[in-house]
Amino acid sequence: MGDSFTEGIGDPEPHSPGGHRGWADRLAEELSRDRDDFRYANLAIRGRLLTQILAEQLEPALALKPDLISISAGGNDLIRPGSDPDALAEKLDAAVGAMSAAGATVLLFNGPDIRDTPVLGMVRGRVAIYNENLRTVAARHDAVIADMWSLRALTNPQMWSADRLHFAPLGHHTIAIMALDALNVPHQLLPQRPEPLPTQKWQAARAEDLVWAREYLVPWVLRRLRHQSSGDGISPKRPTPGPVFGPGMPGGAGA
């Protein structure tokens, strides 16, 4: 359950449903190893706010009677002016309680430390408050915290996609490892070292910033002003449970 983060935006894979892979697909690929009866659904849709995620995805998720539910929600709310991290956590608390009461293990993602990230860095304080609230929610319902705030590797620019708002394939891979470790699941994923970044003159860096602002930041701001979402008209990429095949796995792309 979730938004663009769980949908896998920033990690393009033409052979995956919806054209994106992401940390959740990568995690499911590992969970499915040597399990013929494994089934995976992904209900996340980019751009969704917390209330939308709960209204649209919670009931369908519970109807699947899952053993494990992951939820990352609230990030799109926190970047909006006037958002209240305490109120958001209260809404999420009730939903996590319903998931836990249904017998599912809940994997609850907090937000990464976005101190050095353009645009997102301005809401770092709200993210920190929200994260502390999520720890309380997790403790109350015996949920597992996937702690992105403590994942220092995510401060590397190569973990982020060109839009600087979503994670790149390396970021999704790194997050999948962290989530599997949080669940105490043995896996075959190995940490990948990003290539050293070339030294840039300040003129080149500013030119890149201008291109980024024109291609990504301005459209993002315009959507907010027009009350539009990148997820308008988008459906879940895996609405029903099914087997998952990743690149290099039997039956998957590259196999």
Rank of each mutant, 00 (worst) to 15 (best):
L108Y: 08
N110T: 07
G111F: 13
P112V: 14
P112L: 09
D113E: 09
I114Q: 07
I114T: 13
R115P: 00
R115Q: 08
D116W: 02
D116I: 06
T117Y: 06
V119L: 10
V119Q: 04
V119N: 00
L120C: 01
L120W: 05
G121I: 08
G121E: 10
M122T: 12
V123Y: 11
V123C: 05
R124C: 00
R124N: 09
A128C: 00
I129D: 07
I129R: 14
Y130S: 00
Y130W: 15
E132K: 12
E132A: 08
E132H: 06
N133E: 15
N133A: 08
L134S: 00
R135S: 05
R135E: 14
R135V: 09
T136Q: 12
A138K: 04
A138S: 05
R140H: 14
H141F: 12
D142F: 01
D142K: 07
V144C: 06
V144H: 01
I145S: 06
I145A: 05
I145M: 12
M148T: 15
M148Y: 11
L151P: 10
L151I: 11
L151A: 04
L151R: 02
L151M: 12
R152N: 10
R152H: 07
L154C: 04
L154M: 13
T155I: 04
T155N: 09
T155A: 15
N156F: 04
P157D: 09
Q158W: 06
Q158R: 15
M159Y: 06
D163G: 10
R164C: 04
H166A: 08
F167W: 15
F167P: 00
A168H: 10
P169F: 03
L170F: 07
G171K: 03
H172Y: 11
H172C: 05
H172E: 09
H173I: 06
H173E: 11
T174F: 04
T174D: 06
T174N: 03
I175W: 11
A176Y: 05
I177W: 09
I177N: 06
M178A: 12
L180F: 08
L183K: 04
N184L: 03
N184C: 08
N184E: 14
V185M: 13
V185E: 09
P186H: 10
Q188P: 01
Q188Y: 00
Q188E: 15
L189P: 01
L189H: 04
P191A: 11
R193H: 12
P194A: 13
P194I: 10
P194H: 13
P194K: 05
E195Q: 12
L197P: 01
P198Y: 06
T199H: 12
Q200A: 15
K201E: 09
A204V: 14
A204M: 02
A204C: 04
A204R: 12
R206D: 07
